[in-house]
Design a protein around this nucleic acid. Structure first.
Lengths: 210, 210
DNA sequence: CATCATTTCCGACCGTCAGTCGAGTTTTTT
DNA sequence: AAAAAACTCGACTGACGGTCGGAAATGATG
């Protein structure tokens, strides 16, 4: 903590504030105060308030995304196994630090929307090429029949990201599962795989909560 | 215009401003001035600035949505024809009044995100039950094979809304078409319909621009 | 160490804006 | 006509994002 750069201290401060405060009630001065620096310094490291938020999202998902990508590119393992890793990545990463507090005044969905949009965008664009590659490999290996791997990758990611994020069309967990199950069914039929064969994509390995 | 309520005048003013100005550069005083009323009066009709935006979205899509719904429930016509109306509704309505200006400073994506989120949410939740009904009818008529109509409806709508909105993962028109085409292919295979049979869902009837 | 240059840091200040308030005006009710 | 209710208004407030000029730290040079 003490040896981290001011840049990271600012992000840490924002993250800390995010745990207790509604997003738009966080002011730049407050971030500065929490980070233990002057307000002016903030603008030495970031051009605008928004940029801080964006940077935090970037930082929060760089590592999980990288490992997901690394795993996904292990061409030795089966395409479907790797695909399930993509599913996992979408599911587990979904803007975790925003889910902690549902409480506070519901008046203010403003910048929150911005964050979610950023997150979705991030997720989809980053994972799309990976998933496309996986699908392509599945096609050449004859395990997947589909003539448009990129479109398929995008469709899958859009549905996964949107549903797991659960901001647009908020649903209960059952409904989310139901939709994902539908997606899997669609995927099975669409790629000429027997019904039920892809169910394992959904199986949520409930790791003991750490 | 002159006989419309102040409430509507405020919305009209916002719409007018939206044509030339970047979203967050629009202030409440400005809306009031454009509407020809005092700023205080705004707050007589709306509790907050956000509420004005929400109301505008609501108003903008109430009618198109209603007609789309009405058309979609004409059980006499084929499910696929009605489905194509849903496609059209998604395509043509997509936040039309935000697309006019790409110009201005790209610094400020904040409230814009909020509007898009609202729009997506609106679109999906409103059309989902309609599309589900259509699909269910297609199933009972034997034209569609799928065991989870609601999930299917949601998947289709999510992809359509996200792609046509084009805010997350901004793409060229070709890419959008490509993804939708992929969705159609997936739909054909997933519902046991012959390849190409649903292509008409995509055909964009370019009505002469009025 | 002395001097200068560059990077880093800062908080007082500025302009702006969402939202409030209480007083004024119009409309409706009695 | 009088009272009540609904409506209108713009000056004011408090807070915030961002700027600025200079202070402090750091580093380079000799």
């Amino acid at each position: 903590m003490s040896n981290s750069t001011k840049y990271d201290k600012i992000l840490d401060a924002l993250l800390e504030l995010l745990e207790t405060k509604n997003i738009q009630n966080i002011s730049v001065s407050e971030i500065a105060y929490t980070a233990g620096i002057g307000k002016g310094s903030i603008y030495y490291y970031f051009p605008s308030k928004n940029a801080i938020f964006e940077a935090l999202i970037e930082r929060s998902y760089r590592k999980p995304l990288e490992t997901a990508k690394a795993l996904a590119s292990q061409t030795s393992v089966s395409p479907f196994t790797r695909m399930s890793m993509i599913f996992q990545a979408c599911k587990s990463s979904s803007l975790a630090f925003l889910h902690t507090k549902k409480d506070s005044t519901l008046s203010n969905v403003q910048e929150e929307a911005f964050l979610h949009q950023k997150y979705l965008s991030h997720m989809i664009t980053e994972l799309k090429p990976e998933l496309a590659k996986i699908i392509e490999q599945g096609i050449t290996q004859g395990q997947i029949q589909f003539n448009n791997p990129i479109a398929l990758a995008e469709i899958v990611l859009i549905v996964l990201a949107v549903k797991f994020d659960n901001t647009l069309v908020p649903s209960s967990w059952e409904e989310i599962e139901d939709t994902i199950l539908g997606l899997i069914t669609l995927l099975e039929k669409g790629t000429d795989n027997p019904a039920g064969s892809l169910n394992f994509l959904m199986i949520s390995e409930y790791l003991p909560e750490s």
